[in-house]
């Protein structure tokens, strides 16, 4: 250790700040050496992973198995041991349909309505989310005035709680909300946005895009900034048009990021619940009732809390999410491997 008298003020300060960390390491050193002696150097990564694995196991893996076990039971008892084993009855009930494309022919019509609504939501939400995120990222990648400010503005909604986002928009869209006041001021009639299935779905998609666009814009912006400027300079020297530059350079090089964005947006889209639940409550009727809300309603809001059916529906949802996650992993791996 250096002689304290020879240290500069800044070095002393650094040493002082590092002191607690140094003390912690000194305390940990002996037990870690002991563990290393026991498990060997090759076992040490597992020791470091253990806390995280335990956390993941307790809060994710075990509940997953419990949920699956619940899906094979019936009745209203909360504890698994008290419940009646029903085998695949809950799944058979969910899939009992005259025509899968027409939810009204299904015994559990709301489950299929939830799937149908979620599919419509995903189709429009993901398409427009990716489109708007791309346009915004392209604009924010230009040398425009107050670029930092605009980047922050677009990202700001991502920081808000989904409930806050939904409440803000709900107040805007109500009969006596700001938007209707504006429409009346312009001479139009008020629109009851939450009474029309089309408007309700439109606003559910719009609000979701508004809330999440900043995050995806950031991913695409990072991708855009990773494209070597030489390529654009070479294209400019060759006199390539801007459209051609976009289609032949920007988009192909941004494509791996686009795929990540699409898959992430798909996964988030399937999981949609909180914003729409607060915004529309799933209505009108079941027009914006998505699959997660169906699970919530079935498991918790009925007098007979049907945990078995809710668990079976969430297993189905889990399978869909698993497939999407596998796609995302494959895409990421392909991108990382060049």
């Amino acid at each position: 250790m250096a002689d304290p008298a020879t240290l500069t003020m800044s070095e002393r300060l650094t040493a002082l700040v590092a002191l607690p960390a140094r003390m912690v390491f000194q305390v940990l050193e002996y037990p870690l050496m002991l563990i290393q002696r026991l498990v060997g150097i090759r076992g040490m990564p597992w020791v470091f992973l253990l806390p995280n694995l335990a956390f993941f196991g307790i809060f994710v893996v075990i509940p997953l198995f419990i949920n699956f076990a619940f899906s094979l039971t019936g009745g209203t008892q909360l504890f698994l041991a008290d419940r009646v084993y029903t085998g695949t009855e809950q799944y058979a009930y969910l899939f009992d349909c005259g025509n899968y494309l027409d939810p009204t022919t299904c015994r559990e019509d709301r489950f299929w309505k939830g799937i149908f609504n979620t599919s419509v939501f995903i189709f429009f939400q993901v398409s427009f989310l990716v489109l708007f995120s791309l346009i915004t990222a392209l604009i924010l990648n230009q040398k425009i005035r107050a670029r930092g400010f605009f980047r922050a503005v677009y990202f700001f909604p991502v920081l808000l709680s989904p409930v806050v986002v939904a409440l803000i928009w709900k107040w805007i869209l109500l009969r006596d909300g700001v938007l209707n006041a504006f429409l009346v001021w312009l001479g139009f009639d008020k629109i009851l946005f939450f009474v029309s299935p089309e408007w309700a779905m439109f606003w559910a998609i719009f609000v979701s895009i508004w809330a999440h666009m900043g995050f995806y814009t950031l991913i695409l912006l990072a991708g855009l900034q990773a494209i070597a400027p030489d390529l654009y300079e070479a294209a400019e020297m060759d006199g390539t048009s801007r459209e051609r530059v976009f289609w032949r350079i920007t988009l192909p090089l941004l494509w791996p990021n686009m795929l990540v964005v699409i898959v992430l947006a798909l996964i988030k889209g399937v999981q949609i619940f909180d914003e729409v639940f607060v915004l529309t409550g799933g209505g009108p009727g079941t027009a914006t009732q998505f699959i997660v809300q169906y699970i919530y309603n079935t498991g918790f809001t009925q007098q007979v809390q049907n945990f078995g059916l809710a668990a079976a529906a969430s297993v189905v949802l889990g399978v869909v999410l698993f497939v999407l996650t596998m796609i995302q992993l494959a895409v990421t791996r392909r991108r990382d491997n060049g």
Binding site: R175, F194, G283, T288, Q289
Partner: peptide, 13 residues
Amino acid sequence: MSKELWGSVSGNT
């Protein structure tokens, strides 16, 4: 009656 109340939410809300 206005649909705002009965028509604007789902389930047994």
